[in-house]
Design a protein around this nucleic acid. Structure first.
Length: 495
DNA sequence: CCACGAGCGGTTCAACACGC
DNA sequence: GCGTGTTGAACCGCTCGTGG
């Protein structure tokens, strides 16, 4: 009897350990960057709920929170856990989160909603039934790109809300190894009000330092940071993120296991698609070849590769976009200083990143890009550009802006014209105003967004071939790209 | 009662701006 | 180039509230 009781207990505990170790918290990066402030308990419930979502789920369901399990997993010492959960659910219904959604037109929009839509407690069952707000569905389900995933156990090893929150923010950039935050923005993300920690030293000591120390001690990440000044004021924090070697090994092993399982289930699909090497002489032969390839489903493989490359490119651009929002004036200045008749700054940035990415010479392209800015600045390229406090002619600026708006100038043209007519004369005179640069941030972002158009180009040898391919396979291909990669616009072009 | 975290006041120090 | 004033960061140490 006693033995039985003991084994049962052990089983429960080991189950808890399994859940804790295996459960993943996965969310879209927009949700990672959302603005909200919760208590540690409220956030723990949110994370627990998210971990309950299965990748194959069709829709958000109602989720059950067994209080005992939650207590065991979160490792809390609260005695009255029912009250804690109840109060946390009440709190969650009172505290909205704010998500920045980036629409296709490049305009910023916000979604404000609660994490949960409702909570129910059934007496005698020891658990709460909780619904996640339906509006969060796109940020939690069907995530293919731009999401962050981490183990529940690392969150629950942390002691404060800020530590948990900073952990996922840093986790998002573990691959890049680098994250820059504009302090007011970071404060908003962490839900820190204007009256809280108004002084940087307190903010650093109580929030950043403490969270970083805890993350280093208890999670899979190894984080350090540097404070960056704009003038005398500390305006940015640069975080440097590494995955601890043990955690990396563990993950590598898991990856291998997943890969092996996939192979067993689907047959080996890792063989790369080979491009036919022999020269094809006439059109009939070419078409025959294509038809046969299609039969063998080779085309699908080719499309898959194209889709993957496109998505990778998109990802790099998205990363640049995210970085631009965090670039400080000096970094924008670097982009602009490289501007000449033919080159446009974003092209330079893109080239650097894509080349680095393509050659795999650098493990950390974005970090490299930002470092490039830093190195150039330290070479005193900008030292001569002493920023004076002289005010720019706002009237002139406004006129220019309005004129360009009316003309419908594209973002890149806008930057070029603006650089030549407004910035460059000041630059030459050593009179450059910070605010001018701030005004350029938006067009820079717009330039990248322009580039993010969901287009995919399939290049074929000649027009007849193009027409034939389009009529024969066009619909299938478009359907394939839409379903598989969510790419709408597929263009077939001839050389 | 103690431990701990949050918040804040006071002081010192360094960087920068400004006027001469 | 120098002295002076201003601003912001760093540091010390205190109180207050909460929870065990």
């Amino acid at each position: 009897m006693e033995d039985k009781e003991k084994t049962k207990k052990l089983e429960v505990v080991s189950n808890v350990e399994v859940v804790k170790n295996k459960s993943l918290v996965t969310m879209h990066n927009k949700l990672v960057e959302a603005k909200y402030k919760l208590t540690k308990e409220e956030f723990s419930i949110v994370l627990f709920l998210i971990a309950l979502i299965q990748p194959q789920d069709e829709d958000l369901k109602e989720y059950q929170i067994p209080v005992k399990i939650l207590k065991a997993i979160s490792g809390t010492k609260h005695k009255n856990m029912y009250r804690v959960v109840k109060e946390a659910l009440e709190g969650l219904l009172k505290k909205p989160i704010k998500i920045k959604t980036l629409e296709e037109d490049g305009k910023e929009r916000f979604l404000i909603c609660n994490f949960i839509s409702h909570g129910e407690y059934k007496e005698g069952e020891g658990s709460f039934i909780v619904g996640i707000d339906k509006k969060l569905k796109p940020y939690l389900l069907f995530l293919k790109e731009n999401f962050t995933s981490s183990k529940l156990k690392y969150f629950f090893s942390l002691r404060s809300f800020y530590s948990m929150r900073l952990y996922i923010l840093l986790k998002q950039f573990e691959k890049t190894g680098f994250r820059v935050d504009y302090i007011p923005e970071l404060r908003e993300i962490l839900g820190i009000g204007k009256n809280e920690y108004p002084r940087f030293d307190n903010f650093e000591k109580r929030v950043i330092k403490k969270a970083v120390e805890e993350i280093n001690q208890k999670t899979d990440l190894e984080v350090s940071y540097k404070k960056k000044k704009t003038g005398r004021r500390i305006t940015h924090i640069e975080f440097y993120i590494k995955v601890k070697p043990d955690a990396a090994k563990e993950r590598e092993l898991e990856k291998k296991i997943i890969e092996e399982v996939r192979k067993l289930n689907q047959g080996d699909t890792t063989e790369t698609t080979k491009v036919p090497s022999q020269t094809i002489n006439n059109k009939e032969q070419k078409q025959e070849k294509i038809k046969n390839s299609a039969k063998e489903k080779d085309l699908e493989k080719v499309w898959t590769e194209i889709g993957k490359i496109r998505k990778k490119y998109e990802k790099v651009l998205n990363e640049i976009l995210q970085k631009i929002s965090r670039l400080n004036e000096n970094q924008i200045l670097f982009l602009l200083a490289n501007l000449n008749e033919n080159d446009i700054p974003i092209e330079i940035a893109k080239e650097i990143v894509i080349t680095a990415d393509r050659n795999k010479a650098l493990k950390n392209p974005m970090g490299f890009l930002i470092k490039t800015f830093d190195i150039d600045m330290s070479k005193a390229r900008f030292k001569e550009l002493t920023l004076t406090s002289k005010k720019i002619d706002e009237k002139l600026l406004k006129e220019k802006l309005e004129k360009m708006m009316i003309d419908g100038t594209s973002a890149l043209d806008y930057i070029r014209v603006y650089w030549n007519e407004v910035i460059k004369p000041r630059y030459n005179n050593g009179e450059l105003d910070k605010r001018t640069l701030k005004l350029l941030r938006e067009p820079l972002q717009k330039a990248v967004i322009d580039d993010l158009e969901n287009k995919i180009y399939v290049i074929v040898p000649d027009i007849a071939y193009r027409d034939w391919l389009d009529s024969e396979f066009g619909d299938d291909m478009r359907k394939f790209f839409k379903e598989r990669f969510d790419i709408d616009d597929v263009v077939v072009e001839s050389l």
